[in-house]
Design a protein around this nucleic acid. Structure first.
Lengths: 151, 151
DNA sequence: CAGTGTCCTTCACGAGGACGAAACGAACGT
DNA sequence: ACGTTCGTTTCGTCCTCGTGAAGGACACTG
């Protein structure tokens, strides 16, 4: 396994046996090969490096949510909602917990949370983040799978 | 991404462009290729399936069933059924036991359990899990057979 | 082998509930 | 005056889950 996170493309001679590692950051190609094929495999390895190296989103003190080198400003309510989801990144947060986080003083009406989830979804989608619904249990924040996020 | 956890080896024609997915369960090879090279890539894919799907599935407290790096949400009834099957992973669980687990209060009709088994089968299939029938004795949960990639 | 009953699989349907989304208006800040 | 935030209402859609019914797979019997 590539301990340091560096990808490797093994060039296999015509009469040699290809390697059998399961390391996702290692690949091989049989020579002779076209530039196109080499480029293709190199790019996939690069994409995998970037995919495995991406960390968790971060919320700074000004209400800016950072992820993947981009950021979006969040209004107060949605900032508190995201904060609660970040505390439990990639795990389920109940609707009650979100209600308490978003509205510390009052108890919001039935659909207030729904509407804010919709608006929050649109914002974080620009960062390549996804809020998934777990029916009757809550919501879950995670990175979108192979998304094409707008700039 | 291969939703069901089955690997795929794409055979790329001589004049075609190779795919660029970062999915670790997908690979490609340029035709014409020797049997040795195809075998090698197939085996690596199989090894990766084994690696990602090793260990028992886990049901968290929110009704999410995790296996092989993926998860699916389960509704209440099916969550209780799976919990019973996980207690006896890879061994037979009787229909009566499943009925008691799924419906602690009432006694379900004859094919209520049948229908839920069907629906449960479809869900866990996405994780590469299989519910096998042992006629007149019950059901059994296990990982799906590691199958080679198709063309 | 044909007949028969049991067990299992799957579909289609409908009621009820949970969720999503648009539209509107009020309040707020600049 | 203008854009943004935020709560409310309203309506639509999807999901859950039980029911009924049609059919397949299998064992057992004559």
């Amino acid at each position: 396994m590539r301990e340091d996170g560096t990808p490797r493309l093994v060039l296999v001679a015509e009469d040699a046996t290809p390697p059998l590692t399961t390391d996702v950051l290692e690949d091989w190609i049989r020579l002779p090969a076209t530039d196109e094929d080499v480029e293709s495999r190199v790019q996939v390895l690069d994409d995998r490096v970037r995919a495995t190296a991406s960390g968790a989103p971060e919320l700074d003190e000004h209400g800016l949510l950072h992820f993947g080198g981009r950021w979006v400003p969040l209004p107060p309510v949605e900032m508190r909602l995201i904060a609660a989801m970040l505390d439990r990144y990639r795990t389920v947060v109940s609707r009650e917990a979100l209600s308490r986080a978003g509205w510390p003083e009052t108890v919001p009406g039935r659909n207030v949370l729904d509407v804010h989830i919709v608006r929050l979804r649109r914002r974080v989608a620009d960062l390549g983040l996804v809020i998934r619904t777990v029916r009757s249990r809550g919501y879950l924040l995670e990175e979108g799978s192979l998304e094409s996020a707008g700039a």
